[in-house]
Design a binder for these strands. Structure first.
Lengths: 206, 206
DNA sequence: CAAAAAAGATACCGATCAGTAAAGGTTCGT
DNA sequence: ACGAACCTTTACTGATCGGTATCTTTTTTG
């Protein structure tokens, strides 16, 4: 086995462990939040020691940021793979459904809108901000087109629609429905989509 | 001055300080969240010392719980004072507007749905749970009546509508609109009400 | 099988924070 | 003016946690 192959094999194993760490962190962030998640938790959940953990990520902030970046990449990938011939509303609904399903499987999306500390931490990271902005721009274009076609209401400014849309991905109603009501994931997704686009009073779905 | 009057005066001052502490805690919970709020913060913000603080509340959890209880009482008071001849949708809209305005003035409502730790802490407190349940029952009656009259959609279960309604009081879109968009409080309230009841696609308001 | 590299365990450091103890001031009523 | 609560300041304890150094064990390689 050549030295190049050896190195790449090592690197591969290293990357695999890194993904395991990111997975564990995602679960822990979803369940405990940033403040209450400890690096010992992460190491334990990912099945490696704390010192080894610090071989991958130089700090807790760095680790959490990488998790968020990976999630944004997931969203961007989803959008890129989406059938471009879909209407604006269908595209927004599709992405929202993707995010909700990730969440229902313990996967956290999206905004750590909850903690100003975390928000500040993320906005200091260029790689995160770049992706967030890219996603924002793409969604804004979709929103504009949606208003154009009458699929989205025209009486509200773009940013109000967008922020509301983002908020739906991390709507706590999902947690409550999952916890207290006994609904299937499909039911929850359907209800959340219905209420997001047509509201509590409920226009008929298009 | 009789001894009774003296004691009641003392008690009055004590209660005033207590309210100041609760106010400070409300602000701090809104801005930093439970985990990052320290008791030194509270003492400093309320203008008293930490040991004195512990004369009022036996623990940080106790303090935060009292804040949430006071907020629930505020909501219950608002509902009780509301014109009972209003329609269900108008009543829900009125309470939501009240909650949003409290929030826009730095006042926190409602659910600390964010942190499982906090949620667990609250559900262990009988006085909190009693009020939450009372509010829940009242809102459920309003929701049922709303469906009856066709003011709320009938294709979703009551709890889905209720959880969604609760979520709107702590919708992060409010923070983003306040932070990044330059809207007046009135604008934000109007937008949030519109999107809550009629959704992103926007049925016309009734 | 021997040597080297990497991972693990353990133990530690320093900082933060909830909660407390004990000191000195301040404000009351008497 | 005097004394007794009460409040405040200061300092402390104990626990937790982020991050690191050291040593041991395992694995890999030649």
């Amino acid at each position: 086995m050549s030295i190049i192959a050896k190195l790449s094999f090592k690197d591969q194993a290293f990357k695999l462990r890194e993904q395991a760490v990111l997975d564990a962190t995602t679960r822990l962030l979803a369940s405990k939040g940033f403040d209450l998640m400890t690096m010992d938790d992460v190491a334990g959940e990912a099945g490696l020691s704390k010192p080894s953990l610090y071989k991958h990520f130089r700090s807790k902030e760095d680790l959490a940021t990488e998790v968020m970046i990976r999630l944004l990449d997931g969203a961007l990938d989803f959008l890129a793979a989406q059938d471009a011939s879909l209407g604006p509303r269908a595209r927004l609904a599709g992405l929202l459904e993707w995010a909700l399903r990730v969440r229902l499987q313990g996967g956290l999306p999206f905004l750590p809108s909850t903690s100003p500390y975390v928000r500040n931490m993320l906005t200091r990271n260029l790689r995160y901000v770049t992706r967030a902005l890219k996603l924002h721009k793409q969604l804004e274009r979709i929103v504009v087109k949606g208003k154009d076609r009458g699929e989205l209401r025209r009486d509200l400014p773009n940013d109000a629609l967008l922020y509301t849309y983002y908020s739906r991905t991390c709507d706590p109603a999902v947690d409550y429905l999952q916890l207290y009501g006994k609904y299937s994931d499909d039911d929850i997704v359907r209800q959340m989509l219905a209420v997001s686009f047509a509201g509590l009073s409920g226009a008929d779905p298009i």
